[in-house]
Amino acid sequence: MEIVKTLFQFLAAALLAPLLPGVINRVKAFFAGRRGQPLGQLYYDLFKLLLKTPVYSRTTTWVFKAGPIIGVASLVTALALLPFAGRPSFFAFEGDFIFLIYLLGLARFATVLAALDTGSAFEGMGASREMQFAVFAEPAFFLGLAALARVTGQPSLAGMFGALTGDTWRTAAPVLALLTASFFIVLLAENSRVPADDPNTHLELTMIHEAMVLDHSGPDLAFILYGASLKLWLFGALICSTVLPRHTGSWASDSALFLLMMFGVAAGVGIVESVIARLRLTKVPFMLITAFAFSALALIFQMGR
């Protein structure tokens, strides 16, 4: 019976992930006073792209085609590690969050190499900036998870989020609040959302993530877009599980609450995108260093307890 639930959770995450960008876009449209795209726009896009014939640059090699495939494969694997509403997924073991971070690293590695394979100045630029932000985001994210492991005394994702209860929020509220803030900043930077990057920009010079995938088309682009939505889901789920400890005992109501919260996080991202402007490129590392400072403070607080 457990395995059916786990399978159900996994499928729910895999199928609902493309809805998150839709929610973000609807919230942004609301703030701009527009009607906006349909909620399921990304599903249509994916369907359309899968049926298209790709175009490949003559410069590229197999690395270019392998990039999206490795990217999406590592993100789906990461999804199989990700707890859903505090319950373990297929893989739950000691130190699984380290594996998760490195899986994200693998996806980035493949995407960056695919971008460099085109020999384009713009894609190289995007790749360079992506790696730069990763250097600042990864320690912040890692330190945040370490603090969380210390708060709960558990060395695995499922253990951490299973052990988080309402009581933890009562006793360690400052720590958890700092962690949530840090994770949210990392989410914004890693998913190329507004203060760090602008997913809607149409000027190659200002793109970061978009610039890296300029040359991908057809099914490859579909894989990339789907992978991006999975990544958003992944970070969102970490925030949700931190903010929303398991309240009720029943699986169904927990899951429903979790899904609701996921859309809440997406709406939060949409609001942030609507109300603040993009940071100057040289300021983005400062933003990530702030996230690092939040994580570090949380860890120091917890260690001194």
Binding site: T61, F109, V112, L116, M131, Q132, V135, P139
Partner: peptide
């Protein structure tokens, strides 16, 4: 963690500059 992120940047750079493009 920090060294890992820096190493990833160093190796994508080296491999990219030598073999790709």
């Amino acid at each position: 963690a920090a060294a890992g992120a820096l190493a990833a940047a160093a190796f994508t750079r080296a491999a990219g500059a030598a073999f790709l493009g």
